[in-house]
């Protein structure tokens, strides 16, 4: 019994070391990438003799990069709206009552999240051609929306399962028909989950390469553009674009996490 605290302390130190090794492993590449975006030389590597913001100036002056940014954001927003609408709908349907075939429907709903990206991308491509859908924005939005629905369903269902049955009954008791009760009671309760799921969908869509690559037309999304630029050789301009994208997504992610946590605590 007496040596247990000692053992525990040893464990803690070991766990701490492993943790910091992990953090380094994850962040060193990111830090290097960010640093190279400020280096006053086309050659990527140490030492850095002088610093510059030229690459950033170049990126912000490059209309192609800027319009691609906008294009990616538009795709992310539209596909997110569709996934949230469809996902919430399915979640409410699945959670509201137990019916035969519910596990099957749930399984089919979640499946798109588990199919490897490359396979679903090729399948979408074939399906789109068969339906006569031209590659381009619509096709990308469609594939992103389908891929993201399972995440919305899972998050919203988890939240919905914590809504006491008496809440809906109380609303009905006070004169609300099922639709009014849903809009006035259930939806506000789901807002934190829907917001969280939306942010997740936005980031997933913004980040997606495979589907965007296979279903894209002549206009590239940001990851596709970066890929194209890489083929003509590594440039610090890419580091600058990546750094901007990194700050944006990390910022949104952190804000959303804190925001939804606070909202859940309030309700």
């Amino acid at each position: 019994m007496n040596d247990r605290p000692e053992l525990f302390r040893g464990n803690r130190i070991l766990l701490g070391c492993i943790y910091w090794a992990f953090v380094l492993y994850v962040f060193v590449p990111l830090i290097l990438m960010v640093l190279m975006g400020f280096k006053d030389s086309r050659f990527i590597g140490f030492p850095i003799r002088s610093w510059t913001l030229d690459w950033y100036v170049g990126v912000f002056a490059n209309t192609e990069v800027l319009s691609t940014f906008g294009y990616s954001i538009a795709i992310a927003v539209l596909s997110t709206l569709i996934s949230v609408f469809v996902g919430t709908w399915i979640a409410v349907l699945l959670e509201s009552r137990k019916f035969t075939g519910r596990p099957v429907i749930f399984g089919l709903t979640v499946l798109p999240a588990l199919v490897p990206g490359i396979i679903s991308a090729i399948a979408f491509r074939i399906y789109a051609r068969w339906l006569g859908i031209e590659p381009g924005m619509g096709a990308i939005i469609w594939s992103h929306a389908v891929h993201n629905v399972p995440f919305v369903v899972l998050v919203v269902m988890a939240r919905l399962s914590t809504l006491p049955k008496s809440q809906m009954e109380a609303a009905r008791d006070l004169g609300a028909d099922p639709l009014v009760a849903f809009v006035r009671i259930t939806l506000p309760y789901l807002v934190p989950a829907i917001l969280g799921a939306s942010i997740f969908c936005l980031l997933l869509s913004f980040d997606d390469f495979v589907r965007s690559f296979f279903l894209g037309g002549y206009e590239p999304t940001l990851p596709v553009l970066i890929f194209a630029m890489l083929r003509s050789g590594m440039s610090p301009e890419i580091n600058a674009i990546a750094t901007v994208a990194l700050i944006m997504t990390a910022g949104i992610g952190i804000w959303a996490e804190r925001f939804t946590r606070r909202m859940k605590k309030d309700t």
Binding site: P164, E169, D173, I185, Y189, T267
Partner: peptide, 20 residues
């Protein structure tokens, strides 16, 4: 008749107050 049509109201065991 569904609950919303009845002139009956209920105090629930867990009160079921709307948190928002």
């Amino acid at each position: 008749q569904p609950p919303e049509k009845r002139q009956v109201n209920m105090v629930f065991q867990d009160y079921a107050l709307f948190p928002h």
